[in-house]
């Protein structure tokens, strides 16, 4: 028994180290790939010794801040997905699929349309409001009637809600094309031109979300055994649930405010993580942060190179994540609606 546990723990540590290495590689790739491709060794030199050359300026001025944003947002989305999936005991929970990111973007777009103001500080609060309202709304819709919100119901409710929200968002944008010229990339979920301003604005919120997630991890683990068992183990169920929702709102809202709605990262990353280290959130949390960051970095790097002109990272994230969604749905037993 003791040996088994030790073997399991050492395997988990190995997984964590591998994930960390993957993330470092993804960071270096993100720094070296672009319209002006640089060898990784040169990137490393320029990172440590900026020399004022064009290459150095490109790395420090554009790619480094962009990479940092990708790391923060990807980690946030990965963790938010893990929290949602644990909270709802639902492998299909993802901030994109459940419409939360779409809700955040609609409130931001509406706020811009009404006031004409822009800027990350302004977006943030509306993104939080939209994320909170949408997540509650989707839950209420999926929980209609006597049955509780099953995974399939939640996914369908999310699809319906985000379809309506996305169409309304498009209408608002088309109505005022001038105001939204810069905004169009944001709606597709893009990291182009994102940098320190966005990062410094969202970091406090992401940190609060992370701290909450770490603190309620053990309680969520207990709730994974069912509400009754959780209560018997001393978990304050409504309190834990509410805190988890606050964390999800902070993580998704801040991520969406910074780069726009990005789907499927929060779905695929926790799924891979669970396959590697099991359901324990204390292990899932660090691994989700690492893999979430790597996932979005890879998506963003691919977004720069797959086509002649750059596409939004959200598109690549959907391209990579859609098949994962199909794989989950195929493997699991799906209860009737």
């Amino acid at each position: 028994m003791g040996d088994g546990l030790t073997a399991r723990t050492s395997r988990r540590w190995t997984v964590l180290v591998v994930a960390a290495v993957i993330m470092v590689v993804a960071v270096l790739l993100s720094l070296s790939v672009g319209s002006n491709r640089l060898p990784v060794t040169e990137v490393w030199d320029l990172l440590l010794h900026p020399d004022g050359s064009t290459e150095s300026a490109a790395i420090h001025g554009q790619r480094l801040p962009r990479t940092a944003v990708a790391v923060a947002v990807g980690a946030a989305l990965g963790l938010a997905g893990a929290l949602m999936q644990s909270l709802t005991r639902n492998p299909l929970a993802d901030p994109g699929i459940l419409g939360i990111n779409a809700g955040a973007s609609l409130t931001v777009v509406l706020a811009v349309a009404v006031t004409g103001l822009t800027g990350i500080w302004f977006y943030l609060w509306f993104a939080f409001a939209g994320a909170a309202v949408t997540s509650v709304g989707v839950y209420l819709l999926a929980g209609t009637g006597r049955h509780s919100a099953t995974p399939a119901r939640l996914a369908l409710a999310g699809v319906a809600v985000s379809a309506a929200l996305v169409a309304i968002t498009q209408t608002v944008i088309l109505a005022d094309q001038q105001a939204f010229n810069e905004f169009r990339l944001w709606v597709a979920g893009s990291l182009e031109g994102r940098g320190w301003t966005e990062l410094s604005a969202i970091t406090p919120f992401l940190l609060v979300g992370l701290v909450i997630a770490v603190l309620i991890g053990p309680a969520l683990n207990a709730l994974g055994l069912g509400d009754e068992t959780g209560r018997a183990l001393g978990v304050r169920v409504p309190w834990t649930r509410s805190l988890a929702m606050v964390a999800v709102t902070l993580l998704c809202g801040a991520a969406t405010a910074a780069v726009g709605p990005i789907a499927f990262v929060g779905l695929a990353v926790p799924m891979l993580t669970r396959a590697a280290v099991g359901h324990d959130l204390r292990w899932m949390t660090p691994l989700c942060l690492l893999l979430g960051a790597s996932w979005l970095l890879v998506a963003d790097t691919l977004a720069r190179v797959v086509t002649a002109q750059e596409v939004a990272a959200g598109v690549i994230a959907a391209l990579l994540g859609g098949p994962v969604f199909v794989a989950v749905v195929r493997r699991r037993k799906v209860p009737a609606l």
Binding site: A318, L319, G322, V326, R330
Partner: peptide, 18 residues
């Protein structure tokens, strides 16, 4: 069944990205 609907949603999202 529900599986059909969910698989279709996943396939649709991927094709949308393409």
């Amino acid at each position: 069944g529900t599986r059909l609907v969910l698989v279709g949603i996943g396939v649709g999202s991927t094709l949308g990205a393409i």
